[in-house]
Write a protein that binds this DNA or RNA. Structure first.
Lengths: 224, 224
DNA sequence: GCATTTTTTTATGTATACATTAAAAAAGAC
DNA sequence: GTCTTTTTTAATGTATACATAAAAAAATGC
């Protein structure tokens, strides 16, 4: 999304607010909303709302259906499978690329901090802080991989599964194994072991996918 | 891009026409165009043009720069590297997944046809037809991989490199090795050999990237 | 009662007018 | 001549009016 806007327009406000409403569940998955309804909700005319819905449609968060309403997209099990397949592949590639670059400890400081933050949150049994640090870990990992397009895809797909992750965060087991994986991955990257980095991360993401989809199934959710 | 429009609106026309102008080079990489200019060019008001530029910006084909003009995005060598890194990874994943599915010969008929078409075009030394069949091969390959999101990403990235490929098509060596690779990949998928399918395709894409970037360098092009 | 046709309503697509603001040009100061 | 400030111009953001067309409601026919 290459918009080089400098100030916050109504369109951008609409994007931000709609995103927030979607991620919080206030605009539930599967719900339909007319342009005029959203315009009233956001306190602006239809024009910037239309801009925003086009942008959010391109991000895969909603579907513009003329005369039937803008539908907030829900995810099926198949969607989850597809998203995680791509996430797993591209993040693992980033992990391998990061390891190949032989980063200095300084270069890896931000990644190290996220690992430390996750461990601290885990010790406190603070799931929310842990999730935040976890997200920062994955984002930094992909940045270290050095491909901005990979980073953009991963970020977008993480947005798409944001609700599912929030849903499962409270009920999943405490993420001890996840933290072990992160530590091991950090070590592999530090010592420049691309093959190990790729494998560790691939297994880590695969495990996470199974956990999340399993929990969603337990909750009896076909779409979310 | 989840627009469920049924009829062709001016906005959609604008998207289609601007795409064509970009791919043909009529709107050259690096050129800037005001909204009003594009609206006049396309014979419509600014409103649908604005819709179209938002959509094309999300496709990575242009950048909306308020007051400076809509810039048709050019690609640097780094861009090419990033795009091909993602394409290689995701297409190879698709090849492996396709092999795992143990498709019947019927299932693989469309893919087989693209291979046949490529061979026929190659025998005639018809580069244009070969390129068309090549594109169809890659598209069908990704479809057979079964992940619609992968297919969408791959299609979008192929759009982004479309001009570069067109530029190099006329000057590259006749693609004999490429056709061999396609045949070998088809065989690997047919016999369900995921590992081989992945490897063959990875090597194939890697070779293609080197060829294209090498030719662009020969042409002395830093951006295209 | 059901199917078809016609009319009405309404949501979106589009054009245009107006508001905002960034950039260019002009004026002033040294 | 250069730098700063002010004014003007024009490009984009936004609101609103109008056009179009899809959906809903009403009317008609059997």
């Amino acid at each position: 999304m290459a918009i080089a806007a400098k100030t916050k327009s109504s369109s951008q406000k609409a994007v931000d607010e709609l995103r927030e409403l979607i991620f919080s569940g206030e605009l539930p998955a599967g719900s339909d909303h007319l342009e005029t309804e959203l315009a009233e909700m956001l306190g602006m005319s239809r024009t910037p709302v239309r801009d925003a819905t086009l942008i959010l449609a391109s991000q895969g968060l909603l579907e513009v259906r003329p005369r039937k309403g803008v539908r907030i997209l829900s995810l099926s099990a198949k969607d989850m499978h597809e998203i995680y397949e791509v996430l797993t592949e591209l993040e693992s590639l980033s992990a391998a690329r990061a390891a190949e670059k032989n980063y200095s400890p300084e270069d890896l400081a931000a990644l190290a901090k996220t690992v430390t933050d996750m461990d601290a949150a885990l010790a406190r049994e603070d799931r929310t802080s842990w999730a935040k640090a976890d997200e920062a870990f994955h984002k930094e990992l992909v940045r270290l991989g050095g491909n901005t397009r990979t980073a953009a895809i991963v970020e977008n797909f993480n947005d798409q599964v944001r609700r599912a992750r929030a849903l499962t965060l409270k009920i999943r087991p405490m993420p001890h194994q996840s933290s072990k994986d992160h530590g091991a991955l950090f070590d592999a990257i530090s010592r420049g072991d691309a093959k190990a980095a790729h494998q560790i991360h691939w297994d880590h993401r695969d495990t996470a996918r199974k956990l999340i989809t399993g929990l969603l199934e337990q909750l009896g959710l076909r779409h979310f």
